[in-house]
Amino acid sequence: MWGFIKELLVIVLCALALSLILKTFVFQSFWIPSASMDPTLQENDRILVTKWRPDPLDLRRGDIVVFKDPGGWLPTVPEDTDDTELEAFGKTVLTFTGLLPEDAGTHLVKRVVGLPGETVVCCDADGNITIDGEPLDETYLPSDVDPSLSEFETTVPEGYIWVMGDNRANSADSRAHVGNPGGGSVPIDSIVGTAFATVWPLSHFHGIGNPYEDPDVVTD
């Protein structure tokens, strides 16, 4: 019996170690906490993000990125008081190793619109967002969705990106934080990874690509 228990422990520890390695260097799962990326990503979808973009792969306009709260973007999430200490510990271990998706209390999911050094403006005479004076073709937005209901003009600092949710009327993105340090832009260093697939629920399973055939890139 003891030999069986030891073998089981070894298997469990190896599985945890492998999961931690994958989470750290390859990919990580996240829950979509809100409708701000609807209809591209729906609330409570589970997505996978590659840890290889940005660095060593290039970050591109149109990528959907998961990033840590730069500060003041998310409300304080109350602790779950229904869990026992053992349940809370178990969830912490499973989340740390990547077997549970990261909680929604510390990360956000948005689309890259502006890259470092670019001037992003809303909007031109046709109602389009412009990048350095050129209209941005946002084919991922539904036909009845305006690129932005609020006007803005910003130059993205070096080392930062300008992000927006696809659900433009219901997304507290860079536009809502122009008064914050960075002018609403997000530090590239805070990006955890780039979404490449929706994996749950199965009815929503699909790959997530970049909408631009020849996207601009930025290396950090």
Rank of each mutant, 00 (worst) to 15 (best):
Asn167Cys: 04
Gly165Pro: 03
Gly183Lys: 01
Ile188Leu: 01
Ala176Gln: 14
Thr155Pro: 10
His206Ser: 14
Trp162Met: 13
Ile191Met: 00
Arg168Ala: 12
Thr155Asn: 04
Val192Asp: 09
Tyr160Glu: 07
Ala169Tyr: 15
Ile188Glu: 00
Glu158Tyr: 13
Asp189Met: 07
Thr194Met: 03
Thr198Pro: 07
Glu153Val: 11
Thr155Glu: 08
Pro187Thr: 01
His204Ile: 13
Val178Arg: 13
Asn180Lys: 07
His206Pro: 15
Gly165Asn: 10
Trp162Val: 12
Ala195Gly: 03
Asp189Val: 11
Pro181Trp: 02
His206Met: 10
Pro181Thr: 05
His177Ile: 05
Val163Ala: 05
Glu153Arg: 06
Asn167Gly: 05
Ala172Arg: 14
Ser190Thr: 00
Phe196Gly: 03
Ser174Gln: 09
Thr198Arg: 09
Trp162Asp: 08
Ala172Lys: 12
His204Lys: 14
Glu158Arg: 10
Thr194Gln: 02
His177Met: 12
Ala172Val: 13
Gly183Asn: 00
Arg168Trp: 14
Gly183Glu: 01
Val186Gly: 00
Met164Phe: 07
Gly182Cys: 05
Tyr160His: 10
Thr194Ser: 03
Val178Asp: 14
Asn180Gly: 10
Gly183Ile: 00
Ser190Ile: 01
Ala172Phe: 15
Leu202Gly: 15
His206Ala: 13
Trp200Thr: 08
Ile161Gln: 09
Pro181Asn: 03
Thr154Phe: 14
Val156Ile: 02
His204Leu: 12
Gly184Glu: 05
Asn170Ala: 14
Asp166Trp: 00
Pro187Val: 02
Gly207Pro: 14
His206Lys: 13
Gly165Ala: 08
Gly159Asn: 04
Trp200Ala: 06
Gly207Leu: 14
Gly207Tyr: 08
Asn170Arg: 13
Asn167Met: 04
Gly193Cys: 04
Ser171Lys: 11
Leu202Val: 14
Asp166Asn: 05
Gly193Pro: 01
Ser203Phe: 07
Thr155Val: 04
His206Asp: 15
Asp173Leu: 15
Asn167Tyr: 06
Gly159Gln: 05
Ser203Val: 12
Phe205Ser: 13
Pro157Asn: 08
Thr198Ala: 09
Asp173His: 12
Ser203Trp: 12
Thr154Met: 08
Val199Pro: 12
Pro201Ile: 08
Val163Thr: 06
Phe196Ala: 10
Thr194Lys: 00
Gly165Met: 09
Val186Cys: 03
Phe196Ser: 09
Ile161Pro: 02
Ser171Met: 12
Glu158Trp: 15
Val199Asp: 04
Asp189Gly: 06
Asn170Gln: 13
Val156His: 01
